[in-house]
């Protein structure tokens, strides 16, 4: 192996010999100098992960997070020069990684943080024109057959763990309040203006948004969400609430169209 292939093999594996054909002006050890590149690659990618997953890092502590990040970087180096996309795959990795076993909620917490990053960088879209909304509400009999356009930043997340509360506990400057992680939570993630919001919602509310996102009419999405909510053991948030969903969509300006 020579050339860039030898470099690539050695960049992420400190036990591997450095690539052949390196020279130094003073006869110093090329392996020590090659370490600069190793460090640049590994440390910069670990730092990129730490920036994307600050709450995960806070929960497990910086040393443990470094171990997880280093393991991920070595196993799954990025495939794109756009590092905002790096980290997709981190949650699935830590779900399988024995290093993360003490924190069973960590994969879903990582999914929530990634949803926040995706919401931050999602495409811009104008909120629905109030006149169009008024016109639709003026013909209530047509409402069930309408399709709602949603802002590209809007995403849903559900977990058997209290990852929404864990996330919220780490948004202030002060010490994070204690959270019992062993209860299910769901949230909508969206961007309003410059800010990413994580709004606790019910599982039914999340199913409602997911149905709308795949093209269901308002009537179909309502039926899907209500049926699913009654199947579940009526979670603490009270199941599906159409009025609440519509109010939040309007308030946060993530309703972008009615057709």
């Amino acid at each position: 192996m020579s050339g860039p292939a030898a470099w690539c093999a050695a960049l992420l594996d400190p036990d591997r010999e450095v690539p052949p054909g390196l020279s130094t002006w003073n006869g110093s050890d090329p392996a020590q100098r090659f370490t600069v590149y190793r460090n640049n690659v590994t440390v910069s990618l670990m730092e990129a992960l730490a920036e994307t997953f600050p709450v995960c890092q806070a929960m497990v502590g910086a040393p443990h997070f470094r171990d997880l990040a280093r393991a991920f970087v070595r196993r799954h180096p990025p495939r794109s020069p756009v590092l905002a996309r790096y980290g997709h795959g981190f949650a699935d990795f830590i779900a399988e990684c024995t290093l993360a076993a003490p924190w069973p909620y960590l994969p879903d917490l990582a999914r929530l943080e990634l949803a926040c990053l995706d919401a931050l960088h999602a495409a811009d879209a104008q909120p629905l024109d109030p006149d169009a909304l008024a016109a639709a509400l003026g013909r209530p009999e047509t409402l069930p057959s309408l399709r709602l356009g949603l802002h590209p930043s809007l995403a849903t997340l559900g977990s058997p763990y209290a990852v929404v509360s864990l996330w919220a506990a780490h948004q202030g400057d002060g010490p994070a309040p204690a959270v019992n992680p062993d209860r299910p939570e769901q949230a909508w993630v969206l961007r309003r203006g410059r800010a990413v919001l994580v709004l606790p919602m019910s599982g039914g509310d999340c199913r409602f948004v997911r149905a709308l996102q795949v093209g269901a009419t308002l009537g179909e999405a309502t039926a899907t969400a209500a049926a699913a909510a009654s199947d579940e053991d009526a979670d603490a948030a009270g199941g599906f609430d159409l009025t609440r969903c519509l109010a939040v969509l309007l308030r946060e300006q993530v309703l972008t169209g009615i057709t």
């Binding site: 860039p4 292939a5 690539c8 960049l11 690659v41 180096p77």
Partner: peptide
């Protein structure tokens, strides 16, 4: 410099001969 090889992006500016 190079930074991508074999579909992997190395996030560093690596030297060329």
């Amino acid at each position: 410099a190079w930074s991508t090889h074999g579909g992997v992006f190395w996030n560093d500016l690596l030297p060329v001969p």
